[in-house]
Amino acid sequence: MTDFSDALQTALHLLVNLDAGLVEIIALSLRVSLTAVAAAALVGLPLGALLAVSRFPTRRFWINLLNTFMGLPPVVVGLMVYLMLSRAGPLGPLGLLYTPVAMIIAQTLLIFPIIAALSCGVVQGLFDEYHEQLRSLGSRTLATARTLLWEGRFGLVTAILAGFGRGNAEVGAVLIVGGNINHSTRVMTTTIALETSKGNLALALALGLILILVSLLVASAAQWLHTATMHRGRA
């Protein structure tokens, strides 16, 4: 058990001293994952909602595909983005490989199916419930999707948090497309992997505890926002 108490002590030490290297790494982790979540939500929420309320022949297939892609292996997504962004790949001239932008692209691809599939589920549930009512009001597909996204906003927060968790916790994709470059593309998860490979197990675990703490703070912020808007809605 000394490993765990060592880790806890190291974590506290790093946090209390506000270690500059650690702050840089946490900031980049958050920047990458929050941008990826925002981008994925921008496309995923409306797409999921539209998929839930519209009716067309291949609809089942697309929903099935989204559900499958929720479990995309990060290392495969990383490899695909790597081959696209590599100098020898189709997007090579952009020079994005081994930059935070490459990491954002990879995480967006990972998060998008999660947000789209979960929001599709949320909106689908509401649609089943309010279907008749909406039709009697003469609401068209697009308007229905928007209305139900609004009605389902609290469930959708969970979808977005699930997406954030996926991005913030994965290591396979960002390691391949970011390269874990110090002061440039090093994030929490790649640092943990690196310290483990150096045999600094207590330090690695300490960083893991801090990563969980960061996720807790983000989830709490979402919770707080949720409560605040609920009160405003009632007032």
Partner: peptide, 10 residues
């Protein structure tokens, strides 16, 4: 905003 910050740094 976040993307351009990253692109600038790169």
């Amino acid at each position: 905003a976040l993307l351009s910050a990253g692109a600038g740094a790169a």
